[in-house]
Nucleic acid binder design. Structure first.
Lengths: 183, 183
DNA sequence: TGTACATCAGTGAACGCGCGTTCACTGATGTAC
DNA sequence: TGTACATCAGTGAACGCGCGTTCACTGATGTAC
């Protein structure tokens, strides 16, 4: 049956939120039916909300980056640039982060899959990356350009370390994280 | 019809080699039928060679790491530790590497997918990573432990940079690679 | 060395399954009067 | 404000497709005598 406009908008938001979690947990292959079910709906109604699964993926990748970027901003606001970025880095490279796939950084959890995805997904992904670099640039010395480059390198190291750690046996994972925490 | 033992062994090697290329190009979802076809065989014979698709994935991830690790060793042998590692790093972070998925580093091309794969795949993956860290440790100063940690960080940065660059729009990709080449 | 037979790598059809997407239908909501 | 009707979010069955895996079959290879 038809539902009110407010209800419809709530459903839409729930679908994106469910997808943002499920794709991080299971990858881009997370099924439309499972996403809809996690949002408390049935799969048939999906196309009332999105043109295609790819459109949902784009929206939910954006939402996932939003989450991570605002967490970083929150830390910077609370602790200042230097300590805020350091706290973010420590949490990113923590053992705990390894296990919490569903709220993890999209780059660390979807990166290689998005690399093979169609262009619109990459555009969204790239926008998320630039947002993170921008926020990370709050810390550091030198010109704005130098700080951006340092932030980009910093992000690459964090993402690479977590990607490798998650894909490896526990011992190798530990070595990789420990080495990168020392930076 | 039955073929000779030598022919059989050649088929086996061709299947692994084809898989090592195809999974890097298309991800772990590359189909058994496509792998067999690339090896000049039909899909029905696959289970004469492997117990399951996962067994093939493990073998071909190992083979892909072998390729990359021997390329690094070759450079070190030819140019010495410092220049050899530098040449490897430059090639890893080159625009050219971004496009050559099928001969790329498994970590940069399969990392997030292997993160969700069963344990045996991660063990193989971790072994490949340790081999690369080991080889990269040839360069650098300090104790063996310090050199290993530096090599691990170096590898994490390279992998993260390429993962992010491939998953992003071209402009963001360029910024990320440029920043990491400056290291 | 030759012969008879068992083995088994390779073939191609078939299986069951999960997927993205479509569709006819339902009935509460929104709208026109 | 009340009524009649069009709209459309949500449902659940159905579609076509590709996948990993199984299977009966073929015929050259390997082996036992």
């Amino acid at each position: 049956m038809r539902v009110s406009r407010e209800e419809r908008d709530r459903s839409h938001a729930r679908i994106i939120a469910s997808a943002a979690r499920l794709i991080r947990e299971r990858g881009l292959g997370a099924s439309v039916a499972d996403v809809m079910s996690a949002a408390g709906l049935t799969h048939g109604g999906f196309y009332n909300h999105f043109d295609s699964k790819d459109a949902l993926l784009a929206a939910s990748i954006g939402a996932a980056f939003d989450e991570v970027a605002s967490e970083l901003s929150r830390r910077i606001k609370a602790l200042g640039p230097e300590k805020g970025v350091a706290a973010f880095r420590a949490s990113y490279l923590s053992d705990r982060h390894l296990d919490r796939l569903e709220i993890s950084c999209p780059a660390a959890v979807l990166g290689t899959e998005v690399g093979r995805a169609p262009e619109p997904l990459k555009t969204r992904f790239g926008a998320g990356i630039r947002r993170l670099i921008e926020a990370l640039s709050a810390d550091g010395k030198g010109s704005a350009q130098q700080r951006r480059a340092m932030a980009a390198r910093d992000l690459a190291t964090m993402v690479g370390a977590v990607v490798i750690a998650r894909a490896s046996d526990p011992e190798t994972a530990r070595e990789m994280l420990r080495a990168c925490r020392e930076s």
